[in-house]
């Protein structure tokens, strides 16, 4: 711990100020979140008070959420689809990212730009062709139908390429001399060096799928396949939105992703010591 700490120690009073400012900033950051949480404990006569503390805290929204809706079922759907997508993305995006960072071949730049260009079309314009595809393949209203468009992402490929770039070429060359084939080099040598990026990617991809709304809505019609965001949308109608229920659902939905974040975040910071990110 170290030099950066020792370096920071020289400005010790500044450190206290910095910590305090960071902490206060963090508290301000979560204020809107606290409002959401507070609203979930209010009944609908108090919802529009905007007080941080409910006058008459109640758990009835939570009871309603679990008793009157299929929330547990939506939760499982979300968990399944998000997990499958995350695993697939971690594998393929790092494979492609590695290939684009460490192999020299004709067309590399073009492939990279092409994959990057997938980020430039809004999902809204893709759902119609995807729907036609899913129908042709018989995937409508199945978990596979929800999952398939997200199995690989330009975002993850780009992130992994940037991080694989920093893996020293000497290491790879040495592994080649040891008789490892290219797949083994990627899997056994390079992958362990980018654990932080993989952890960050895992968090972001899981989160992205956890909150995805449009495609899961379009791809499913059975209530049993609904993911959490699609299920929660039923609380917003033409005439009224039951905000206390939306807030309750959103609060509960945050817990698993918070768990995933806490699970992976230490790897982001601790795993990095091996490899530096170089230009």
């Amino acid at each position: 711990m170290t030099i950066s700490l020792a370096w920071a120690d020289r400005v010790a009073p500044g450190r206290i100020v910095a910590w305090t400012v960071l902490f206060l900033g963090g508290v301000v950051m979560i204020l809107p979140f606290v409002y959401m949480l507070a609203t979930s404990f209010k009944d609908n006569s108090e919802v529009y008070d905007l007080s941080l503390l409910p006058r008459h805290p109640t758990l009835e929204n939570y009871v309603e959420l679990f008793e009157k809706t299929a929330f547990a079922r939506w939760f499982l759907s979300s968990l399944l689809t998000s997990t499958v997508t995350t695993i697939s993305v971690l594998f393929f995006d790092s494979l492609v990212g590695y290939t684009l960072a460490k192999f020299d071949f004709r067309g590399r730049g073009l492939v990279f730009v092409a994959i990057l260009s997938t980020l430039m079309i809004p999902t809204e314009m893709l759902v119609i062709p995807w729907y036609v595809m899913a129908k042709t393949m018989g995937w409508l209203d199945t978990y596979w139908g929800i999952v398939f468009p997200g199995l690989m992402t330009g975002f993850g490929t780009f992130l992994m390429r940037q991080f694989f770039d920093s893996v020293p070429d000497d290491l790879i060359a040495a592994a080649r001399l040891d008789g490892l084939n290219e797949f083994q080099i990627w899997w056994q040598v390079a992958m362990p060096l980018v654990t932080p990026a993989l952890s960050a990617l895992a968090i972001f991809v899981f989160l992205g799928n956890w909150t995805a709304f449009l495609w899961p809505l379009i791809a499913t019609s059975s209530k049993s396949l609904y993911t959490i965001p699609v299920g929660l949308a039923a609380f917003s109608g033409e005439y009224q939105t039951q905000w206390e229920m939306v807030m309750t659902g959103a609060s509960v939905a945050t817990l698993p992703v918070l768990f995933v974040f806490i699970l992976f975040q230490k790897y982001i910071v601790n795993g990095v010591m091996l490899a530096g990110l170089k230009g």
Binding site: E124, F213, L214, L217, I218, S221, V230, A233, E238
Partner: peptide
């Protein structure tokens, strides 16, 4: 379907 995005669906 949820009212939101009924048209989209």
């Amino acid at each position: 379907f949820p009212y939101a995005d009924y048209q989209t669906k």
